[in-house]
Design a protein around this nucleic acid. Structure first.
Length: 255
DNA sequence: TTCCATGTTCCGCA
DNA sequence: TTGCGGAACATGGA
């Protein structure tokens, strides 16, 4: 689920809960903060939004309900009776007037916070710029890259460097920019930095517009990755391990 | 059985 | 300060 476009898609799917009153909270996983979550009951959901990969619900108070879906988390709005929700459901917010918001998460790595300010959520304050915001300009990006000797893929995965990119979209933007994941940020030419900036915006914007269903699109690297061949030249893809995860690239198209 | 996975944090070491 | 590797978290699939 969980990179910027996926999180946007989740929010779009559950937009019907905006303005609804939470009638009852059912915590089904002892890992979750049951007591704090109890405080969500009888509050109206005033707004919901995204910051990085976090989903932030603004409740009356104000009180904030913040989710991070990690690897396998998902939020689902359902009209069904609560007995019918998926077995991986960890949390149920029953809404007044029927229906419920479910937090399902097969691997149970996702996290939930109930806080007086989103800044109280670990890592939230340190988030880097939103790549699709107006404030994220080429100049801002150039400045951020300047003097960084880490591998560029490492930086793209670093949420304090830029918010919302993960392993899949990191590989996607590097492929589209024709830059290998293991290149040192400080070794990129001004032209490469600009190309990368443009592709970050373009790829994420397009993925958001398409509801994050990028795997359905021919020519996208994320899909080629599964097939093992470059969508442009047909070369066999290679990978290197960066930050403990595989970074795939085309040895011919990415220099 | 072993490895791997769209994520993050924390720790130790250079 | 920066960068990196490894472990931990938890579960299922290949």
């Amino acid at each position: 689920m969980p990179e910027l476009p996926d999180v946007e898609a989740v929010i779009a799917r559950i937009k019907g809960v905006r303005g609804r009153l939470v009638r009852e909270v059912e915590v089904r996983d002892e890992k979750l903060p049951a007591e704090a979550l109890g405080g969500v009951a009888d509050r109206r959901i005033e707004d919901m939004g995204r910051r990085g990969k976090f989903i932030v619900f603004t409740l009356e108070g104000p009180l904030y309900l913040v989710f991070h879906l990690r690897m396998t988390g998902d939020l689902v709005y359902t009209e069904r009776e609560k007995g019918a929700c998926p077995v991986t459901t960890r949390l149920v917010l029953e809404l007044e007037g029927g229906g419920a918001l479910l937090f399902a998460d097969r691997r149970r790595l996702g996290v939930v916070y109930v806080v007086k300010s989103p800044e109280d959520v670990p890592g939230f304050r340190d988030l880097g710029p939103e790549p699709l915001s107006g404030g994220f300009t080429l100049e801002v990006f150039r400045e951020a890259v300047k003097g960084r000797r880490a591998m560029i893929k490492s930086l793209l995965l670093d949420q304090s460097f830029i918010a919302g990119i993960g392993n899949i979209y990191g590989d996607e933007v590097l492929f589209q920019s024709r830059i290998r994941p293991g290149r040192r940020a400080s070794d990129l030419s001004p032209g490469e930095v600009e190309a990368l900036y443009e592709k970050i915006r373009e790829v994420l914007r397009e993925a958001v517009e398409r509801g994050a269903r990028v795997r359905e699109l021919p020519g996208w690297f994320v899909r080629a990755r599964e097939e093992g061949r470059c969508p442009k030249c047909g070369s066999g893809l290679e990978w290197v391990r960066i930050q403990g995860r595989r970074s795939y690239f085309c040895p011919r198209c990415q220099g």
